[in-house]
């Protein structure tokens, strides 16, 4: 087990290193940010001065080296556009994105588990068929278009919910969150639902498939033979067994929620990291782009690592094949 974790950790560090080099070289191949940042009337000397001040006159490998050594001490450079440390800029926006993703995840779980269970227990009922048709639609509907339609219906026509921004935030343990005020919740509802839609469909399908498989297993028959009430069979015996793969998938999907938040944040003008990324791409603010990507890459690698280790701990079969490999 320890050897497995050590090897997985080494792989993660290597992956992080490879991705940092790819991202750095890639992003630094985009245009020249000096052209955008500087006053067009500036003379050659001014351009040279700014280029040197930003460190862009150095050869690529030297820039990468200074980037890497600074990154290891937690400094990912200063934003070209606002002259603030890029990592501060992103960390400021992070609570908004994480809040959005968390609420979306909660919506997906609260709706998806019961609906999936229902569809799995009574697969031939009309309700089950409607649920499955709905989940196909949820997979097929392009997220950004659903967002637009939500705005059209609930903001423009009905006027119930605000279409942009986060609303008032309150300070909870040093984080600015909007889910604890009524107005903030109203701002949160539409973007979170929009973001949740895809995961909701996924969760319904996973739960349904798991339930259908579990219901014909011997342990379910045995529980029934023992006289365990049906309610308890489903809520204790079945649920416990289907939850392992679901928790694993949800863990992995949390990262993709943060990535997909880029789209939702852009539609609803939600001031999170994703919107910051799109804005930064538009003004070629390299340090912010690189810092965002590094943080996301780091996040993904950590999530994958944690899920892998948890899975190994939960399921002895994986542990055995991992030890042999």
């Amino acid at each position: 087990m320890l050897a497995y974790i050590a090897r997985r950790l080494a792989q993660s560090v290597l992956a992080l290193f490879v991705m940092s080099a790819l991202v750095f070289v890639g992003v630094y191949a985009i245009g020249n940010p000096v052209d955008i940042l500087i006053n067009p009337q500036a003379d050659q000397a001014e351009i040279a001065r700014v280029t040197a001040a930003l460190g862009l006159d150095q050869p690529m490998w030297k820039q990468y080296w200074s980037f890497l050594s600074a990154a290891l001490s937690g400094d990912l450079g200063k934003s070209f556009a606002s002259n603030v440390s890029a990592i501060t800029l992103i960390l400021e926006r992070m609570p908004a994105t994480v809040e959005l993703a968390l609420v979306a995840m909660i919506i997906a779980i609260v709706l998806g588990l019961p609906l999936g269970l229902w569809a799995g227990l009574k697969p031939d009922s009309f309700a089950a068929k409607s649920i499955m048709a709905g989940s196909i639609l949820g997979f097929s509907l392009p997220t950004f278009w659903v967002g637009l339609m939500l705005i059209m219906i609930f903001s423009v026509w009905l006027g119930w919910l605000p279409s942009t921004g986060r609303g008032p935030t309150i300070d909870v343990l040093g984080l600015q969150l909007s889910m604890f005020t009524w107005d903030g919740l109203k701002h949160l509802l539409m973007p979170a639902t929009n973001l949740a839609l895809f995961k909701l469909s996924l969760l319904i399908r996973l739960t349904r498939a798991g339930t259908r498989e579990a219901m014909v297993q011997d342990y379910v028959r045995f529980a029934r033979a023992k006289g365990v009430p049906e309610r308890r069979v489903v809520s204790v015996h079945v649920l416990k067994n289907i939850l392992i793969p679901i928790v694993t998938v949800l863990g992995l999907e949390f990262g993709s929620l943060i990535a997909f938040a880029i789209v939702t944040e852009t539609i609803f003008a939600w001031p999170g990291m994703g919107k910051l990324l799109i804005d930064s791409i538009n003004v070629l603010d390299r340090p912010v782009i690189v810092a965002y990507l590094m943080i996301i890459v780091f996040l993904f690698i950590v999530i994958n690592l944690v899920v892998d280790i948890l899975y190994t701990a939960l399921d002895p079969r994986v542990r055995l094949s991992g030890a042999r490999a």
Binding site: V23, G26, V27, I30, S256, A259, F260, I262, I281, I296
Partner: peptide, 12 residues
Amino acid sequence: PAILIALILLAI
């Protein structure tokens, strides 16, 4: 996720 990879490439 696919969208992230595509975004990075198009940003480049």
